[in-house]
Design a protein around this nucleic acid. Structure first.
Lengths: 154, 154
DNA sequence: GTCACTTTTGAGCATATTGCTCAACTTGAG
DNA sequence: CTCAAGTTGAGCAATATGCTCAAAAGTGAC
């Protein structure tokens, strides 16, 4: 990904529904170029799944919580699969140390969250968990600052 | 958001570049309906920014880390602003307790991460931090399971 | 059941976009 | 210089979009 790609993505971030023609005009590039680069980015894994744009709040899951878990590392694969089977589990990272997991979950309300936390703790191979509720989104997910830097070639 | 909206989003998740016409046909809905619902979702905040689809790896920031920080809660606003000024800070949550922050950062390499962690610790109002590197993405961000549930009206 | 209200549908139409191809022109690396 | 890759402008057929409208179908209140 070069600076031009970053400029295209920035324009798209500003207006997700912008057409290729509009992007080309705005960026003073040929339509062909924008089209080719977009295809390349889409196929090259620069763009993740569309699901990422969907807000869980719209799915009546306004609560976000982070569960850290200690696992028996021999059962990491099974644990990982069991967590993936829980719908409310949105994202799981293996943290440094190989024994700690960070599980991002969403829930409809406090009771729902309690239930999900219980499901996680019940997974075979998970030893200990702590749950922290996300009270405020102080900085909503964003990549614009990095995109801007990349667009300027730095 | 109702079950029909969820079905539209599911179809879009499967093929982000699908046209409205294709979605309508696939879902056996009228093109008008799909178009109207998409506009409504886009304007109603169901869809978050396009940036969410961009992979930081493509921006030469293959490392993800989670920094937890303790803050003086009287300075929460200033701290929040200072964190937002760091480009590598991708997302910040205020966790239950009002005194803990979870900061998601990306970095180019270990050295870069060290630098960013230092910047965070240097923010006035931040008392203590711990940094955990995300070694593996065990469950990549996904909403499909919840979407499927919503699509079935449960 | 009836009324009012919202949503969906199908149709139509002008305009814009897409996907594709091609040849010519730049650009940077070796 | 020479090659390979990227960009550009042009063109073209097929398709999608944005918009409007009126009729049909659901929905909930009473």
């Amino acid at each position: 990904m070069d600076a031009t790609d970053a400029r295209i993505l920035l324009a798209l971030a500003a207006d997700p529904r912008a057409t290729v023609v509009a992007l080309a005009e705005q960026l003073s590039l040929s339509r062909n170029t924008v089209q080719a680069r977009l295809v390349r980015m889409e196929q090259g894994g620069v763009l993740g799944s569309f699901e990422r744009r969907i807000s869980p709040k719209a799915l009546d899951q306004p609560l976000t919580a982070f569960v850290t878990a200690q696992v028996n590392q021999h059962q990491l694969a099974e644990v990982s699969q069991a967590l993936a089977d829980i719908a409310e589990v949105v994202e799981v990272f293996g943290l440094s140390g190989e024994t700690d997991l960070l599980v991002r979950v969403v829930a409809a309300d406090a009771e729902d969250l309690y239930r999900v936390a219980g499901q996680i703790l019940a997974v075979r191979g998970i030893e200990r968990t702590t749950t922290a509720l996300a009270m405020r989104e102080l900085v909503p997910h964003r990549l614009t600052p990095l995109l801007r830097r990349a667009a300027e070639g730095r």
